[in-house]
Amino acid sequence: MEKAPRSNDLRTRVGGQSGLERRPLVHVRLDDVDHRLLAALAEDARLANNALAQKVGIAPSTCLARVRRLRDEGVLRGFHADVDPALAGRPLQAIVAVRMHGAARSRLKAFLRELAELPGVMNVYLLGGAHDFFVHVAAPDSDGLNDFVIENLSANPGVALTETNLIFEHVRASWY
């Protein structure tokens, strides 16, 4: 029996039926052990609990409880595979800046969700500033990128402008 998603569950906040509601920002108190756990998981999210506990210097039962709390409180939003787009058949990456028409502003959040579901879209950012979105796309070739922009963005009546910037190299930062 599947349990109901928690209010801070990523499915509820982003991909679920309820969309992108704003959650009240609640500061979660993190101590040095929590920060070490987050750094270790950011480096390798596949670490087994025993290995993670040993790396951080705590008991496995403590480690399990702390990781569970970090997930329950929304600090850890999920665990992800870092797929190489080139090796997966999409070697051409771009950031496409999108500006919407003023009349389409009421659909920004819905369009954000629609963009995130398109094939080849790696990330979508809703912005403040000159552009409304940055869409990180991986395509098989320049024709595929061109087709993506024309069919999914330029053809949309709410889109006023697109600007495509090719990515020559990407290095995943370990920010934590």
Rank of each mutant, 00 (worst) to 15 (best):
F134S: 05
L52D: 06
A53Q: 04
Y125T: 07
N146W: 03
D82K: 07
N165G: 00
A4H: 08
N146R: 13
M100F: 11
L153K: 02
Y176C: 06
A65T: 13
R107S: 11
L87F: 07
V14C: 04
R107P: 01
V149N: 02
G120K: 15
R77F: 00
V26Y: 03
Q54H: 13
V135R: 07
I167W: 02
L153F: 01
I150S: 01
R36M: 04
G89K: 06
M1H: 05
S142H: 08
K109M: 06
S142V: 12
A39M: 03
D132E: 06
P5W: 00
A40C: 09
A53C: 10
R68K: 15
S106W: 12
R29A: 14
F168Q: 07
D32C: 00
H27S: 14
R113C: 00
R13C: 04
D72F: 08
R107T: 05
A81M: 11
S154N: 09
L118C: 08
R13I: 14
G89W: 03
T62F: 02
R22C: 00
T164H: 06
R36A: 15
A39R: 15
S142Y: 08
V135L: 10
N152W: 09
G78K: 10
L70I: 12
F168K: 06
V137A: 13
L153C: 05
K55N: 10
W175L: 14
S18L: 14
P91K: 14
D32I: 04
A39K: 14
A53G: 05
C63A: 15
T62L: 08
L153A: 02
T164Y: 06
I95F: 10
P157W: 02
E114F: 03
D44N: 15
L87A: 14
S154Q: 02
L126K: 03
T12K: 12
F134Y: 15
G128M: 13
R71C: 07
D141F: 09
D143G: 12
L38K: 08
